[in-house]
Structures are given as C-alpha cells and as structure tokens.
Write a protein that binds this DNA or RNA. Sequence first.
DNA 1: TATGAATGAGTGTTCATTCAT
DNA 2: AATGAATGAACACTCATTCAT
Lengths: 193, 193, 193, 193
Amino acid sequence: MKVVSEKRERIIQAATIIFARQGFYNSTVADVAKEASVADGTIYLYFKNKDDLLISIFERSMDMFIQAAEEEINKEKSAENQLKRFIDLHLRLVHKHQELAQVIQIELRQSSKFIKEYANEKFFSYLNIVEKIIQRGKEQKIFNVDINAGILKRAIFGAIDEIALEWVLMKKKRYSIEEASYELCQMFVKGLK
Amino acid sequence: MKVVSEKRERIIQAATIIFARQGFYNSTVADVAKEASVADGTIYLYFKNKDDLLISIFERSMDMFIQAAEEEINKEKSAENQLKRFIDLHLRLVHKHQELAQVIQIELRQSSKFIKEYANEKFFSYLNIVEKIIQRGKEQKIFNVDINAGILKRAIFGAIDEIALEWVLMKKKRYSIEEASYELCQMFVKGLK
Amino acid sequence: MKVVSEKRERIIQAATIIFARQGFYNSTVADVAKEASVADGTIYLYFKNKDDLLISIFERSMDMFIQAAEEEINKEKSAENQLKRFIDLHLRLVHKHQELAQVIQIELRQSSKFIKEYANEKFFSYLNIVEKIIQRGKEQKIFNVDINAGILKRAIFGAIDEIALEWVLMKKKRYSIEEASYELCQMFVKGLK
Amino acid sequence: MKVVSEKRERIIQAATIIFARQGFYNSTVADVAKEASVADGTIYLYFKNKDDLLISIFERSMDMFIQAAEEEINKEKSAENQLKRFIDLHLRLVHKHQELAQVIQIELRQSSKFIKEYANEKFFSYLNIVEKIIQRGKEQKIFNVDINAGILKRAIFGAIDEIALEWVLMKKKRYSIEEASYELCQMFVKGLK
DNA sequence: TATGAATGAGTGTTCATTCAT
DNA sequence: AATGAATGAACACTCATTCAT
C-alpha cells in the first residue's frame, strides 16, 4: 500500500475544486475526471460512487481539522483562550482552503443523504471539542455553570460556520478574517460567562 | 380566478412537503404534482420551472416571517427584549412549520443558483432586522458600542439557524424549543454587552 | 350559415403567418390562437386538429389558384400563350402572397401525412392544368407530339415551384419575378417544341 | 477506433431509414437508436443532437453526389452531353438510394433551420455544377448566350428534383427512371438552345 | 359560440455507472 | 490499474387537446 494513493488524492483535490465551482449536483463525474486528468472509470476504482466522493472530501478534511484543533487547543490552559484559538483556527483554515470550505458548507448540506441519513460521526467530534472547552470553562469557573453546553456548542458552531460562509462567498471582502475572529471571540467569551 | 390562486397555494404546500421529505434534487416535478393532486403540466402554469418553485417557497415564507418579526419587535421598547422576542419568534415558527424550515435551511443552500447568483434581497431584510436591534441596543447603552453589528448580525443568524436545524432534524428531541430560546437569548444578551 | 365564417378566415390568416414565420412544427396552436386573437379552444371549433389547419390552408389556396388559372388560360387560344399566362400567374401570386407560398412550399412537404398519405386531389388538379396545356399544344402542332406530358407536367411544376421558393426566401432579390417568368417561359416553350 | 467510426455509420444508415419511413418530426431518437441497435445515449456520442443527425445525412450524401457528378461530367466534352450525364446520374442515384433521397428531398426542407438559417454550402455546390455546364454550353455556342444561367440552374434542379420525388414516392411506377431521364434531357437541351 | 385552465402523454437529452480491453 | 465507449434509466418541460363554465 502506498502511503496514501497519489491518484486518490488527486481525484479528491479535483472534486473539491469542481464541486466548489459548480455545486455538487451541477458537476458531473466526467468533470471531476477531467480536472483530475484521469479516465471516468478510474474514479470508481477509488470511490464507491459520486456521493462517496463528497463524503470522502468531508471526512478527510474533518479529520485534518479535528487533529489540528486538538493540537491548537492543547497549547492553552484557560478555556477562554482555548475558545479563541479554536475560532481563530476555524476561520484561518477556511481562509486558506476556500474551495474546500465551500464544498463542506454548501454542497454537503444539499441532500438528505448527508444530513439526515449519514450518521455524522466526524461532525459530532467537532462539536465535542467545543463542548469540552465549555465544560472546562465551567470547571475553571470562567463560564457560567448554568449554561447548557449541549445546546450552545451547536449555536457556536452555527455562528462560526455562518461567518465563514459569508466571508468565503463575499466577493469584495468587507472585513478581514482577523476582525471576524476577534468579534466572535469577544461575544462568546462574554456570552458564556 | 380566486384572489390568490388556490391552486398555486396547493402546489407550494405540496412542494414544501416533498422537498422537505426527499430533498430538492431528489424530488421530481411529478412527485410534487402528485402530492398537490394536479397534473405535471399544471405546475408550469404557476411556476417558471422547478427552481422557481423553490425560490417561491422561500420568498413567500420570508415575507411572512419578516412581517411577523417586525410586528413582534414593535411590541417592545428595549433592544434586549426585542432580541429575545426575535429569537423566540424564529424558533417558534420553525417549530410550527418544520417542513418549511427544513426546505429553507437545507434545500435552499444547495445550489449556487440560490446562494451565489440569486440576489438574496429577502435574506438581507432578515439580517437588517437583527442589525437594527443591535444598533438600537447601542443607542440605549445596553449593548457595547464597539461591537461590529455588520459581522455579528450574521453570527446571530447562524446560531439561531443552526439550533433550529438541529432541533427540526432531531428525532428524539433532547431539549425544548423554549429551552433553546432561553439559552440563546442569555448568551447573546450577555455577549453583546 | 355565414357566407364563410369570419372567424375561420381569421384563424387561417393567422396560421399562415405563424407557420411561414416559424415553421409548422415549431409553431404551437397557442401561437396561432394569439395571432388570431381567439382562445386556444376556439380553433377546435373550426378545425379538427393542427394538421387540419395546415391542410385547410393548402386546400383553400389551391382552390383559389386553380380557379384563377383556368380563367387566365381561357383568355388565350394558343398553348404557347396559355403556358406563358400560367407561369406568369403562378409567379405573380407567389409574389403577392409570399407567406402563403412559403407555407405551401415548405411546411406542407414536411410530413408524410401530407405528401404520402393524404390523397392530394387539389395538387393533381394543378398538374392537370399543365397537362391539358401540353396536350392542346400537341394538337395545335406547336409542341412535339412525342413528348411525355405525364412526366413533363411534373417537371414544369418542379421548375416553377423551385424558382418561386428561391425567390420568396431570397432576402436581397437578385432578379425580378418578371425576369424569372420570362426565362422560364422561353425555356419551356422551346423545350417542348 | 476505426478509421471512420463504424458505429457512426450505422447510426446514419438507421436514421436515414427511420426518417424516410416516418418523417423527421415523427421519428424519435429512440426509434433511430433501436434501428441502429445502439443505446439512446450512444447517438449523442456521435451527433450533437437530433438536428445534427439530419444535417449529417445531408452533408455526407451531398459530398458523395458532388464528387460523383464531377467525375461523370469530366467524361464528356460537350455541354449537351455533360447535362445529360448529370441528369442521368442524379436520377440513377435517387433510384439506388431511395430512402436517402426521400429524406433529403422531403425532410430536409421541413424546418427553417435547414432552408433559411443553415447556410447551405453543399447545395450551392450542386447548383454551381449546373451553372458551369450552362456556361460551357454558351462558350461552345451550343446554348443560347442570352439565357440567364443564374435563374435556370435552379429551375433545372427543381425539375429534376420534383421528378425524382414523384418517382420515389410513386408506389406503382408509371414510368422508368430511364424514360424520365430521356424526357428531361430532351426538354432542357432544346430549351437552352 | 367562446373561453382558457387543466391535462398528461410524449421526448430530447443527460450522466452515473459498467465492463471489455 | 486504467481506460473511455457504451449503456439506459431518469426527468424536466412542452403542447395538442379537452371541457366545465
């Protein structure tokens, strides 16, 4: 086994570009194959079907994000700073991988398949990171012990995600990623107290 | 011809149900026609094409929501209470029209057509309501004058939207809409101070 | 019964215009109805179906042409002059009713229905006029008795028809109807001797 | 891949048969596919769309005809004999490829697309051959120098075309192709003098 | 007579997927 | 492993025709 099949990687990159540019349902497998410079059939050697391609993009990037997030968080002790690091990382990665971000935020939501039926383990891992930060904040007496982490982890994700989406789709950027990060951090740190 | 075509209304209702159940791209025009008990061709008497049907669902419900929101907000003086009313209304309406909410939140995001190209007037009206509340809060010295309403209006929307989405899709409800509303209000009111 | 229903006439006129402009298969019954300022359904009060509309245009105009041709021919004694009058009339009428001519020449040929299956009485009447002129010419010793009128009547029709078609479709007219008429007459009169 | 795709050829053959039998507008792509023993989609690997299929039939056969006509004409010196050869060839080919002839003569005229909009290069090449023969005849003092070749080339085509059409559609042949050829030649040779 | 809303069968075209090479 | 020609199911949309008013 190669470290990770180089061709599989190329296809994922190509699919990310194509799906971001045209949308999942408006992209054909042939489009992806062409972008990846492989034959149509080759895609089916590495992915079960078109849906699997989308899911694979998601899983791979979530794995990377979750790992990066955990490393980043471990650099800090206080929940407050951890939350800041987390938000900052999320927005910086979106900034760095704008096409990938678009695919995950827009295309992945499209179909019931992904949101309703597909048991979204990776997404829960993401949310767990946020929840743990909140819990730690409560233990450290930084955050209000009465707040419901189960609900708010999702609200925090929604807010970050929406800002990221807006920023990626905005043609003429009205604010920087740093500003956005600062505003969000301020609001949540105060809001959770 | 009725004042507002009864058949047009029936088709919109049917489309909402079908799109929520199967997703926009996995629904056929024939599915919608069958659910509405009209012939396939009849749909094209009232809507330009399948996309137009989706957009119409969105515009009609946004109009209703915006009107309701403005009425609700006018019942209060303080920005704090206005924000509470707003969040509460949003979540209550989602609770009441779960299928509609699903369509708007999930299906409408799916295609570049809607998010990127379609000039989303109605959505900006929604965001403007939030922005005005924040501005009023600043004037009333309730909210911190330094916060960036242009960014945070979107964050607030994202948080509410995400909670609503989770709640609608959750099979076994782990929390009530009222709890969710309370938690969100608490966090934002504190967060904006 | 009105002399000839005024509405029926209006519909035929409208259909002629629409079919000439867009072609029979690219015209809808609704297009014709709109041009005639009647409701779609009204057309079915006067015509059995869309095909019947086309056939009716043809029959009505052939009747008119055949009558006019017989009158015109009776003004002359010699077959040579009769042939000249005939060709001249054909081309003058095409000149006068260009849209009608287009429909008959192009659209009517489209479908097997008209050329193969539809027993084309009127068309045979047309050809018979030509045949009779040739026969008369033979009797008058003006035309060669050996020529086969059964074949050449059709050739003469084809030549006139093609010239008429070219002339109607030509945007910038490279020759006048009178020139065309003169050239054709010269050739046939000599050719039949 | 064969030198000239064998499958493309098969589809053209099948389309010729189907269009001749049912007419272009009354044939479905599925009919053609079935006759060619290929899948519906395969047709779109070789042709842009249904119209393209019809145009391709026309262009291929016109190329063949024009080449054959030029070879045939070069066998003769006198314009008179060249004209005879030309008429003879046209009618013999129609005799040999009756279905093809029907498609070209009937179906191709049907739509504005072909006659009005489609710049009909090939057809002009056909007409040019006739024109050149007439010019040569004038130079050889065989034909009358006063006749208008620009007009009469089209008349000659119309006559041949119409005779060919009649002959192909005639169920019980009332005359042979050879007779038709003889009559036409006689008439035109005399008529052009 | 006249209307025009409603119908629903029909079709060109697309594209995910397969499989012989 | 890789190819890409071939497949054929699927679907949005059209439009001739009907019929209740």
